[in-house]
Write a protein that binds this DNA or RNA. Structure first.
Lengths: 199, 199, 199, 199
DNA sequence: CATGAATGAGGGTTCATTCAT
DNA sequence: GATGAATGAACCCTCATTCAT
């Protein structure tokens, strides 16, 4: 681990920030906490990121799991569930980043960021499956399905209800397929046997 | 009326606290904010409640809408959706209290409080409908449906996706009925024509 | 000296601020310095004044010596010299407040404040003596005389040139009278025998 | 040309420092400001000058306009006024360096520097004109005249009173001659028709 | 020799909370 | 019992300066 390495230091700050901001939210996290966690002087946060706010923005920049939108259309919902249930979000404290960001949703900026990622990534893709704009209330049904995914993420990690907290992707497969098929008006498959390329 | 002043002051503090905590979250709310909002000296918060934390606990004490669990079983889900969509949560800044509390979920205490209300009120009632403990994965299916309700609440107010934000209970009725029926394995009705006894 | 006395505490803060700001200037003075000097907690600065800047503004609020503009017109210049030379400016570190404020003249706000007091109090009164607006270049001559007063104040305290630093009002009397008479185009008297009501 | 780079870099740092220190004062100027202005790494300030303080000292080293003390004695005061009013002090932000240094007069070192230049250059020369040490109060009268010059500089640039701010040397000529003659006890001329050898 | 990463002290300011009055 | 003055810790951030590379 080389000292005096700009990129390495930046990365360590980002890593610590990601974890703290996810677990404790923006307000409950101090720059000194992040500095201590990463073993880096707090001043460097301002040198490299300018402000606590900008560090937050960069640390929580949206990262949909790669490949989420690629692959067979009928498996899209299954891939989304896997993103919530299976994907390795250790970097974000074990939660889907969107769920973690809710903890900072007291600030309108954060709400805006959540809104953009939910709409651009999830709702948009699901709306296309639901028949696009030509179909009556495709948007609403896409939002309802997105709401379900978000809700599952919250009950799993924030609320930690007993069954969802320990559920694996396979446990949810039949229910997912049934509900998605009902909402989108077209057959959706469950989850493939293996976890695919997911971590 | 010196006797009732104490109660009136307490009530005003609680009211202001409820609104602030819901809108801005625990950390972003200062006791001085609450004092100013309610026109009361900040010291009284400590006299009456002991600490900011205890004021928060009391202000956000769970309040399921009255009558939520009463009435025909097949309309339970419809009543729950109405609790999220229709009920007048002005006191809590316009959001379902559970959704508002997510903003303060940086603290484990708050998570515990959310967990209890979600499980005790929503999951429990839905599990009974899904067949009780004797039925395979009734708990999981109840949690999945609860997750959906929570998710709808979040997308409506926090994320404010376009269609859900403006949806009324009637818009969601058919979808609700279809999904609930599928998940619970028994027919659930949509919403009655009128808003029922909801405020 | 009563504790927990709002006005007394405010006054002590103002006194300490006046001295520090005068001696060291705005930037070199920290709120903690002022707090330590006055034996008051630094937080109270913000409670009572809102910000360091507003404390500065209040501490350096212009105070022309009372009676400066009252009395025989031909003695006005003499009174002004006395204000610079004799008046007890201990509160401001021994200098005329305007001179002290030059130490903070890096900030445009302060320059504006100096400008207003110089123009409103000194230049205006002298311009009237020089013949008012109807006389050719009365304004210029009034400004030139004001410049002289300011310059005397600076050489006395900031630069501390040997003779001016120790000069008393009587030492300057003949020169003052001569120059003022020449500049204003009307006879100005020197200083009265005694120091009058000045401290 | 690696040999001259060092000198060129030093010169650029000095130039930027001169401007910043003059305009904003010592405390409000950061070494990073100077480094940025000159396009030079901030570390070089410490390599070349040792500290911010020593850079300040070097950047504000006294520079009486060349030729100030040469020429006919009866024109000395006129030349001094020209130094304040006409000389191109762009390097110092447009003000006479002594005036600019008042902005940093919170520090005794700076006051000492101002004192030396005022005494050695201005007061000394004027005292000789006033009759030298053998004449009663020649020193005082020399200081009074110096005070006037300093005061004019301040009202022109810091305070920016309307007439002095726009005055040119010619506007001040008659008043200068009259006052100087009165104070020094010997005839002083106004300004020559042209600007003379001034830059 | 020059770059820039690192440092530690201190800046103004706000916080929840306590204690006189 | 109610008011508000006082407190001290902590906040984000900037500073002049040093030390590896």
């Amino acid at each position: 681990m080389p000292k005096r390495d700009r990129e390495a230091t930046r990365a360590r700050l980002l890593e610590a920030a990601r974890l703290r901001f996810a677990r404790e939210g923006y307000d409950a996290t101090s720059v000194r906490d992040i500095a201590k966690d990463s073993g880096v002087d707090a001043t460097l946060i301002f040198r490299y990121f300018g402000s606590k706010k900008r560090l937050f923005d960069e640390a929580t920049a949206a990262h949909a799991p790669p490949g989420l939108l690629d692959g067979p259309a009928e498996e899209l919902v299954a891939r989304m569930v896997r993103a919530v249930v299976l994907h390795d979000w250790t970097e974000y404290g074990g939660e889907h980043p969107l769920v973690a960001m809710l903890r900072s949703s007291a600030h309108e900026d954060t709400r805006q960021r959540i809104r953009e990622e939910v709409c651009d990534t999830y709702v948009t893709a699901l709306r296309d499956l639901a028949g696009g704009e030509k179909t009556e209330d495709a948007e609403l049904r896409a939002e309802l399905l997105s709401a379900w995914l978000v809700g599952i993420g919250i009950l799993r990690s924030v609320v930690a209800t007993p069954e969802l907290a320990k559920a694996e992707a396979g446990d949810l497969a039949p229910h997912v397929a049934a509900v998605a098929t009902a909402l989108l008006g077209r057959p959706m498959s469950g989850l493939p046997k293996d976890g695919g390329s997911e971590g």
